[in-house]
Amino acid sequence: MSGELRLTGLTRVHGRGRPPALDGLDLAVPAGSCVAVLGPSGSGKSTVLRLTAGLDEPTRGSVHLDGRDLAGVPPERRGVAMVFQRPLLFPHLSARDNVAYADRVRGAPRRRARARAAEFLDLVGLAGLGDRAPRELSSGQEQRVALARALAAEPRVLLLDEPFSALDAPLREEMHELLVDLRARLAPTVLLVTHDPAEAAALADTVAVLEAGRLQQHGPVAELHARPASLSVSRLLGGRTEVPGQVRAGVHHSPLGALALPGPVADGPGVLVVRPEAVALAAGHADVTGTVVRVRYRGLRPLVTVDAGGVAVHAELTPGDDVVAGAVVGLRLPVAARHVVPVRPG
Protein backbone atom coordinates (compact mmCIF):
# COMPACT_ATOMS: atom_id res chain seq x y z
CA MET A 1 0.00 0.00 0.00
CA SER A 2 2.99 2.33 -0.22
CA GLY A 3 3.68 4.37 -3.31
CA GLU A 4 6.35 6.81 -4.31
CA LEU A 5 5.29 10.44 -4.41
CA ARG A 6 7.10 13.10 -6.38
CA LEU A 7 6.16 16.78 -6.45
CA THR A 8 7.75 18.85 -9.18
CA GLY A 9 7.73 22.63 -9.43
CA LEU A 10 4.44 22.65 -7.54
CA THR A 11 2.98 26.16 -7.48
CA ARG A 12 -0.37 27.47 -6.32
CA VAL A 13 -1.54 31.06 -6.63
CA HIS A 14 -4.88 31.57 -4.87
CA GLY A 15 -5.76 34.83 -6.57
CA ARG A 16 -4.52 37.20 -9.21
CA GLY A 17 -1.90 39.58 -7.84
CA ARG A 18 -1.47 37.64 -4.61
CA PRO A 19 1.86 36.07 -3.69
CA PRO A 20 1.90 32.34 -4.39
CA ALA A 21 0.84 30.17 -1.45
CA LEU A 22 3.30 27.61 -2.77
CA ASP A 23 6.16 28.46 -5.08
CA GLY A 24 7.94 25.84 -7.16
CA LEU A 25 8.13 23.04 -4.60
CA ASP A 26 10.24 20.02 -5.53
CA LEU A 27 9.87 17.19 -3.08
CA ALA A 28 10.28 13.44 -3.27
CA VAL A 29 8.67 11.05 -0.80
CA PRO A 30 10.18 7.58 -1.30
CA ALA A 31 7.91 4.57 -0.90
CA GLY A 32 7.45 3.63 2.75
CA SER A 33 9.08 6.76 4.10
CA CYS A 34 7.67 9.61 6.14
CA VAL A 35 8.47 13.16 5.07
CA ALA A 36 7.40 16.04 7.27
CA VAL A 37 6.68 19.44 5.82
CA LEU A 38 7.52 21.86 8.60
CA GLY A 39 6.60 25.51 8.55
CA PRO A 40 4.87 28.29 10.42
CA SER A 41 1.19 28.96 9.74
CA GLY A 42 0.67 30.52 6.35
CA SER A 43 3.82 28.96 4.94
CA GLY A 44 1.84 26.99 2.37
CA LYS A 45 2.32 23.62 3.99
CA SER A 46 -1.37 22.65 3.95
CA THR A 47 -1.49 23.69 0.29
CA VAL A 48 1.05 20.94 -0.42
CA LEU A 49 -1.39 18.35 0.90
CA ARG A 50 -4.44 19.82 -0.82
CA LEU A 51 -2.66 19.80 -4.18
CA THR A 52 -1.43 16.26 -3.60
CA ALA A 53 -4.93 15.09 -2.67
CA GLY A 54 -6.48 16.83 -5.66
CA LEU A 55 -8.66 19.07 -3.50
CA ASP A 56 -7.10 22.08 -5.24
CA GLU A 57 -5.55 22.38 -8.68
CA PRO A 58 -1.91 23.48 -8.96
CA THR A 59 -1.29 26.67 -10.90
CA ARG A 60 1.91 25.09 -12.20
CA GLY A 61 3.87 21.94 -11.56
CA SER A 62 2.91 18.33 -11.21
CA VAL A 63 2.19 15.53 -8.76
CA HIS A 64 3.44 12.08 -9.69
CA LEU A 65 2.47 8.95 -7.78
CA ASP A 66 4.44 5.82 -8.76
CA GLY A 67 5.46 7.60 -11.93
CA ARG A 68 1.91 8.50 -12.97
CA ASP A 69 1.00 12.14 -13.47
CA LEU A 70 -2.09 12.92 -11.38
CA ALA A 71 -3.06 16.09 -13.27
CA GLY A 72 -6.82 16.10 -13.74
CA VAL A 73 -7.34 12.94 -11.65
CA PRO A 74 -10.16 13.56 -9.14
CA PRO A 75 -9.38 13.04 -5.42
CA GLU A 76 -11.33 9.79 -5.19
CA ARG A 77 -9.16 8.13 -7.85
CA ARG A 78 -5.74 9.25 -6.65
CA GLY A 79 -5.14 6.53 -4.09
CA VAL A 80 -4.40 9.00 -1.33
CA ALA A 81 -6.16 9.43 2.00
CA MET A 82 -6.05 12.42 4.26
CA VAL A 83 -6.36 12.93 8.01
CA PHE A 84 -7.16 16.50 8.98
CA GLN A 85 -6.60 18.33 12.24
CA ARG A 86 -10.33 17.99 12.92
CA PRO A 87 -11.30 14.31 13.03
CA LEU A 88 -14.27 14.90 10.68
CA LEU A 89 -15.92 11.60 11.59
CA PHE A 90 -19.25 11.35 9.81
CA PRO A 91 -21.65 11.99 12.71
CA HIS A 92 -24.42 9.79 11.31
CA LEU A 93 -22.21 6.70 11.17
CA SER A 94 -20.79 4.57 13.98
CA ALA A 95 -17.03 4.42 14.46
CA ARG A 96 -16.99 1.08 12.63
CA ASP A 97 -19.01 2.38 9.67
CA ASN A 98 -16.77 5.42 9.48
CA VAL A 99 -13.79 3.12 9.09
CA ALA A 100 -15.74 0.94 6.64
CA TYR A 101 -16.66 3.98 4.53
CA ALA A 102 -13.83 3.65 1.99
CA ASP A 103 -14.65 -0.02 1.35
CA ARG A 104 -18.36 0.72 1.12
CA VAL A 105 -18.01 3.46 -1.50
CA ARG A 106 -15.83 1.09 -3.52
CA GLY A 107 -18.66 -1.42 -3.52
CA ALA A 108 -17.52 -3.92 -0.90
CA PRO A 109 -20.39 -5.80 0.79
CA ARG A 110 -21.33 -4.35 4.15
CA ARG A 111 -20.37 -7.46 6.12
CA ARG A 112 -16.87 -7.62 4.68
CA ALA A 113 -16.30 -3.87 4.99
CA ARG A 114 -17.31 -4.00 8.65
CA ALA A 115 -15.07 -6.99 9.35
CA ARG A 116 -12.10 -5.13 7.88
CA ALA A 117 -13.09 -1.98 9.78
CA ALA A 118 -12.97 -3.96 13.03
CA GLU A 119 -9.42 -5.05 12.17
CA PHE A 120 -8.31 -1.47 11.58
CA LEU A 121 -9.98 -0.28 14.79
CA ASP A 122 -8.05 -3.05 16.54
CA LEU A 123 -4.86 -1.76 14.88
CA VAL A 124 -5.30 1.71 16.38
CA GLY A 125 -6.14 0.29 19.80
CA LEU A 126 -9.89 0.80 19.70
CA ALA A 127 -11.06 -2.82 19.55
CA GLY A 128 -14.60 -3.09 20.85
CA LEU A 129 -15.53 0.55 20.35
CA GLY A 130 -16.90 0.08 16.83
CA ASP A 131 -20.51 0.57 17.85
CA ARG A 132 -19.88 3.97 19.41
CA ALA A 133 -21.19 7.06 17.73
CA PRO A 134 -18.52 9.70 17.08
CA ARG A 135 -20.03 11.94 19.76
CA GLU A 136 -19.42 9.20 22.32
CA LEU A 137 -15.67 9.16 21.68
CA SER A 138 -12.96 11.25 23.34
CA SER A 139 -10.94 13.57 21.13
CA GLY A 140 -7.99 11.17 21.15
CA GLN A 141 -10.26 8.26 20.21
CA GLU A 142 -11.85 10.32 17.46
CA GLN A 143 -8.46 11.00 15.90
CA ARG A 144 -7.58 7.30 16.17
CA VAL A 145 -10.76 6.43 14.30
CA ALA A 146 -9.90 9.04 11.68
CA LEU A 147 -6.47 7.44 11.29
CA ALA A 148 -8.00 3.95 11.05
CA ARG A 149 -10.48 5.23 8.47
CA ALA A 150 -7.69 6.64 6.32
CA LEU A 151 -5.57 3.47 6.66
CA ALA A 152 -8.57 1.28 5.77
CA ALA A 153 -8.73 3.07 2.43
CA GLU A 154 -5.32 1.47 1.74
CA PRO A 155 -3.91 4.65 0.25
CA ARG A 156 -0.64 4.61 -1.62
CA VAL A 157 0.16 7.84 0.22
CA LEU A 158 -1.20 8.84 3.61
CA LEU A 159 -1.54 12.61 4.00
CA LEU A 160 -1.57 13.95 7.55
CA ASP A 161 -2.50 17.60 7.98
CA GLU A 162 -1.48 18.57 11.53
CA PRO A 163 -3.45 15.55 12.73
CA PHE A 164 -2.39 15.77 16.36
CA SER A 165 -2.18 19.54 16.89
CA ALA A 166 -5.57 19.79 18.56
CA LEU A 167 -4.70 17.12 21.15
CA ASP A 168 -3.13 17.87 24.50
CA ALA A 169 0.49 16.87 25.10
CA PRO A 170 0.10 13.38 26.62
CA LEU A 171 -2.43 12.34 23.96
CA ARG A 172 -0.14 13.71 21.27
CA GLU A 173 2.70 11.56 22.63
CA GLU A 174 0.42 8.53 22.50
CA MET A 175 -0.53 9.27 18.91
CA HIS A 176 3.14 9.66 17.98
CA GLU A 177 3.85 6.23 19.43
CA LEU A 178 0.87 4.82 17.57
CA LEU A 179 2.05 6.27 14.28
CA VAL A 180 5.57 4.93 14.79
CA ASP A 181 4.06 1.48 15.46
CA LEU A 182 1.83 1.72 12.42
CA ARG A 183 4.79 2.68 10.26
CA ALA A 184 6.72 -0.33 11.51
CA ARG A 185 3.79 -2.63 10.75
CA LEU A 186 2.33 -1.29 7.50
CA ALA A 187 5.16 0.84 6.05
CA PRO A 188 2.83 3.37 4.47
CA THR A 189 4.20 6.33 2.54
CA VAL A 190 3.40 9.34 4.71
CA LEU A 191 3.46 13.02 3.92
CA LEU A 192 2.98 14.87 7.21
CA VAL A 193 2.40 18.56 7.67
CA THR A 194 3.20 20.14 11.02
CA HIS A 195 4.32 23.36 12.66
CA ASP A 196 5.93 21.48 15.54
CA PRO A 197 9.63 20.61 15.06
CA ALA A 198 9.40 18.04 17.85
CA GLU A 199 6.60 16.26 16.02
CA ALA A 200 8.56 16.32 12.76
CA ALA A 201 11.60 14.92 14.59
CA ALA A 202 9.53 12.23 16.31
CA LEU A 203 7.79 10.94 13.20
CA ALA A 204 9.65 11.75 10.02
CA ASP A 205 12.68 10.35 8.22
CA THR A 206 13.33 13.65 6.53
CA VAL A 207 11.99 17.14 7.09
CA ALA A 208 11.25 19.78 4.46
CA VAL A 209 11.17 23.29 5.85
CA LEU A 210 8.77 25.60 4.09
CA GLU A 211 8.55 29.33 4.50
CA ALA A 212 6.42 31.78 2.56
CA GLY A 213 5.67 29.06 0.03
CA ARG A 214 9.30 28.26 -0.68
CA LEU A 215 11.30 25.20 0.29
CA GLN A 216 14.15 26.33 2.53
CA GLN A 217 15.85 23.04 3.21
CA HIS A 218 15.11 19.32 3.02
CA GLY A 219 17.05 16.68 4.84
CA PRO A 220 17.27 14.35 7.83
CA VAL A 221 16.31 16.00 11.12
CA ALA A 222 19.85 15.75 12.49
CA GLU A 223 21.24 17.56 9.47
CA LEU A 224 18.69 20.35 9.76
CA HIS A 225 19.58 20.77 13.40
CA ALA A 226 23.33 20.70 12.89
CA ARG A 227 23.61 22.57 9.60
CA PRO A 228 20.56 24.82 9.01
CA ALA A 229 20.69 26.50 5.60
CA SER A 230 19.31 29.77 6.88
CA LEU A 231 18.52 31.62 10.07
CA SER A 232 14.80 30.98 9.56
CA VAL A 233 15.40 27.21 9.44
CA SER A 234 17.57 27.48 12.52
CA ARG A 235 14.91 29.46 14.38
CA LEU A 236 12.07 27.17 13.31
CA LEU A 237 13.97 24.19 14.73
CA GLY A 238 14.56 25.90 18.05
CA GLY A 239 17.98 27.43 17.43
CA ARG A 240 18.43 30.63 19.44
CA THR A 241 22.06 31.72 19.57
CA GLU A 242 22.95 33.89 16.59
CA VAL A 243 26.34 35.62 16.49
CA PRO A 244 27.06 37.90 13.53
CA GLY A 245 30.74 38.07 12.56
CA GLN A 246 33.34 37.46 9.88
CA VAL A 247 34.83 34.18 8.71
CA ARG A 248 38.53 34.22 7.90
CA ALA A 249 40.50 31.07 7.16
CA GLY A 250 38.03 28.74 8.84
CA VAL A 251 37.72 30.83 11.99
CA HIS A 252 34.68 32.89 13.00
CA HIS A 253 35.57 36.29 14.45
CA SER A 254 32.97 38.10 16.55
CA PRO A 255 32.55 39.80 19.96
CA LEU A 256 32.74 36.23 21.35
CA GLY A 257 36.28 36.01 20.07
CA ALA A 258 37.89 33.77 17.47
CA LEU A 259 36.11 30.42 17.25
CA ALA A 260 37.46 27.69 14.96
CA LEU A 261 34.90 26.05 12.66
CA PRO A 262 34.62 22.30 12.04
CA GLY A 263 34.72 22.38 8.24
CA PRO A 264 35.75 24.64 5.41
CA VAL A 265 33.65 27.80 5.17
CA ALA A 266 34.04 30.56 2.59
CA ASP A 267 35.52 33.79 3.91
CA GLY A 268 33.17 36.71 4.47
CA PRO A 269 30.36 37.74 6.77
CA GLY A 270 28.52 34.92 8.46
CA VAL A 271 26.26 34.26 11.43
CA LEU A 272 27.46 31.63 13.87
CA VAL A 273 24.67 29.42 15.22
CA VAL A 274 25.02 26.90 18.03
CA ARG A 275 22.11 24.81 19.28
CA PRO A 276 21.30 25.39 22.95
CA GLU A 277 21.49 21.70 23.87
CA ALA A 278 25.09 21.53 22.50
CA VAL A 279 26.31 24.27 24.84
CA ALA A 280 27.59 23.08 28.22
CA LEU A 281 29.15 24.58 31.35
CA ALA A 282 32.93 24.55 30.97
CA ALA A 283 34.79 22.45 33.53
CA GLY A 284 38.20 23.69 32.52
CA HIS A 285 38.88 25.79 29.44
CA ALA A 286 35.92 27.98 28.47
CA ASP A 287 35.22 29.03 24.87
CA VAL A 288 33.04 31.87 26.08
CA THR A 289 32.72 33.62 29.41
CA GLY A 290 29.77 35.77 30.36
CA THR A 291 27.13 36.73 32.89
CA VAL A 292 23.94 34.73 33.37
CA VAL A 293 21.03 37.09 32.69
CA ARG A 294 18.10 34.68 32.79
CA VAL A 295 17.37 31.15 34.00
CA ARG A 296 14.19 29.24 33.31
CA TYR A 297 13.45 25.56 33.35
CA ARG A 298 12.20 22.97 30.88
CA GLY A 299 11.39 20.12 33.20
CA LEU A 300 14.57 19.71 35.21
CA ARG A 301 16.80 21.26 32.56
CA PRO A 302 17.89 24.84 33.16
CA LEU A 303 17.58 27.06 30.08
CA VAL A 304 20.19 29.73 30.55
CA THR A 305 20.81 32.97 28.69
CA VAL A 306 24.37 34.24 29.04
CA ASP A 307 25.47 37.73 28.04
CA ALA A 308 28.98 37.46 26.61
CA GLY A 309 30.31 40.80 25.43
CA GLY A 310 26.89 41.99 24.31
CA VAL A 311 26.00 38.73 22.55
CA ALA A 312 23.30 36.45 23.95
CA VAL A 313 24.32 32.80 24.12
CA HIS A 314 21.56 30.31 24.94
CA ALA A 315 22.31 27.03 26.65
CA GLU A 316 20.17 24.09 27.69
CA LEU A 317 22.13 22.64 30.60
CA THR A 318 21.92 19.23 32.21
CA PRO A 319 19.79 18.73 35.33
CA GLY A 320 21.77 19.60 38.41
CA ASP A 321 23.72 22.40 36.73
CA ASP A 322 22.56 25.04 39.17
CA VAL A 323 23.35 28.54 38.00
CA VAL A 324 21.75 31.73 39.20
CA ALA A 325 21.18 35.01 37.41
CA GLY A 326 24.15 37.36 37.85
CA ALA A 327 26.72 34.59 38.10
CA VAL A 328 29.73 34.62 35.78
CA VAL A 329 30.05 31.30 33.96
CA GLY A 330 32.30 29.76 31.37
CA LEU A 331 30.64 27.91 28.47
CA ARG A 332 31.90 25.29 26.09
CA LEU A 333 30.78 25.53 22.46
CA PRO A 334 31.89 22.18 20.96
CA VAL A 335 33.64 22.70 17.65
CA ALA A 336 31.40 20.13 15.91
CA ALA A 337 28.29 22.07 16.98
CA ARG A 338 29.44 25.36 15.48
CA HIS A 339 27.81 26.24 12.19
CA VAL A 340 27.96 29.38 10.12
CA VAL A 341 24.97 30.55 8.12
CA PRO A 342 26.01 32.83 5.27
CA VAL A 343 24.55 36.31 5.34
CA ARG A 344 22.31 36.78 2.33
CA PRO A 345 23.00 39.94 0.37
CA GLY A 346 20.23 42.47 1.03
Binding site: A53, G54, L55, P74, P75, E76, R77, R78, V80, A81, M82, F84, L88, F90, Y101, A102, V105, R106, R149, A150, A153, P155, L159
Partner: peptide, 9 residues
Protein backbone atom coordinates in the same frame (compact mmCIF):
# COMPACT_ATOMS: atom_id res chain seq x y z
CA UNK B 1 -13.24 16.62 1.16
CA UNK B 2 -12.52 13.80 3.58
CA UNK B 3 -15.10 11.59 1.84
CA UNK B 4 -13.59 12.38 -1.57
CA UNK B 5 -10.07 11.40 -0.52
CA UNK B 6 -11.52 8.18 0.92
CA UNK B 7 -12.66 7.26 -2.58
CA UNK B 8 -16.22 8.58 -2.81
CA UNK B 9 -17.44 10.12 -6.06
Amino acid sequence: EEARTLGAT
